[in-house]
Design a protein around this nucleic acid. Structure first.
Length: 372
DNA sequence: AACTCGTGGAG
DNA sequence: TCTCCAAGAGT
């Protein structure tokens, strides 16, 4: 009694109750589908939509994206997070142009060799752009499968994920792959939700192991809790006239490839003073700057990401004299460039919130560096 | 094989 | 406020 039926119910439900009007639906253009799938990695639909539309307007096809400077891609991506996706997106576009003559591949095997496309994303593109019979496994599908088939354990665990991939492959229908694939995601997003699932509206409730065993609320098993380390750092907002000094961050790591304020970690146990950090940054860039008497006066600014809670202490400095240009990898960003620059969203907001020209400070900073 | 990478929403 | 995690991939 268990074999078959699951997929058929999902397909039928998707056609009646699923989502059909998302911006990347209703096309077989592999470029558009790829773009949406990459943006949707670990990112919710509502967040992606405006980014997707801006990208499509700026880069109507792969060639346009491949030909664009990386910095423009980073700029359009800024605020979306996981910035290695943006770098891989650009690399992938270049490879499609150079190795595939500008025609996006649609078979999962080839797709998976491209940067930023893993097993699940490759399958999704192959399904929606090529009608292939392939299994996806994202957060929605994991949750649906865990509950429907009573899979215990945390899905992040290797053995559990392996079991889920096997299930995903096994339940694949022979026909109606697009509706089935979309249906699994729609089910997870609108019915089989993480909290307060609507089992009364679920097309597979009759065969759901978790519902039968009253364990819907416990599946999938949550990630094992672990201590959250705290990393403290300072951010130095150096103003020269109406421009802020920003540094390009290394390509990998947090905020990789983006521009940010000079940042310094505060060593455990021996936090250097704000003034000492300011002096260090000033020396690096050949600047003479002043710091407020009390850096704590600046509003604290907290940013949290993945496992670390990063407490950022910003404080504002003022350039008194520049002995030369800023060090390589740094630029002065005019205030009206802040909104469109390739900055992490928290930094962008911080710069927008900081008063560019405090009252009574106009006399010695007119924007032109003073030779020493 | 665990760990890293962002941001925002929900509870 | 704090936890958990979302259309995962790369290392």
């Amino acid at each position: 009694m268990s074999g078959g039926g699951f997929a058929a119910a999902v397909v039928d439900w998707q056609r009646r109750e699923g989502r059909h009007d998302l911006p990347w639906q209703g096309t077989r253009d592999a470029y558009r589908i790829w773009l949406s799938e990459v943006m949707l990695q670990q990112t919710q639909v509502a967040t992606v939509v405006p980014y997707y539309q801006r990208f499509l307007a700026a880069f109507p096809d792969v060639a346009a994206l491949a030909g664009a400077p990386l910095d423009q891609v980073m700029r359009l991506w800024s605020g979306l997070g996981y910035y290695s996706r943006a770098r891989n997106l650009h690399r992938c576009a270049v490879e499609v142009v150079e190795r595939h003559g500008g025609r996006f591949p649609v078979d999962a095997g080839t797709l998976e060799t491209l940067p930023g496309i893993g097993r699940s994303t490759a399958a999704a593109i192959a399904v929606f752009a090529g009608g292939a019979r392939a299994a996806i496994l994202d957060g929605n599908v994991k949750r649906v499968l865990c509950r429907a088939f009573g899979v215990a354990g945390w899905p992040g665990e290797r053995a559990v994920e392996k079991r889920l991939w096997e299930l995903a492959e096994r339940e694949l229908p022979q026909a109606g792959i697009e509706a089935y694939t979309q249906g699994l995601m729609d089910l997870g997003a609108t019915v089989c939700t993480r909290s307060r699932p609507a089992c009364e509206r679920c097309p597979v409730a009759g065969r759901c192991v978790a519902l039968r065993e009253d364990s819907v609320g416990r599946l999938p098993a949550p990630r094992p809790a672990r201590a959250v380390p705290l990393r403290e750092c300072r951010m130095l907002a150096i103003r020269q006239g109406d421009a802020w000094l920003v540094e390009k961050r290394p390509p990998s790591g947090i905020w990789g490839g983006l521009w940010s304020l000079p940042q310094g970690e505060i060593a455990d146990g021996a936090p250097g003073s704000a003034q000492a950090f300011a002096a260090e940054v000033a020396a690096r860039h050949g600047l003479v700057i002043t710091t407020p008497e009390a850096p704590e006066a600046a509003a604290p600014f907290v940013h949290a990401f993945t496992h670390f809670r990063l407490r950022i202490e910003p404080f504002v400095c003022r350039v008194v004299a520049a002995r030369g240009a800023a060090a390589p990898g740094a630029v002065w960003l005019a205030r009206d460039e802040v909104p469109g620059a390739a900055l992490p969203r928290p930094v962008k907001r911080l710069l927008m919130a900081l008063d560019p020209i405090p009252p009574g400070a106009a006399a010695d900073t007119d924007g032109s560096p003073t030779a020493a």
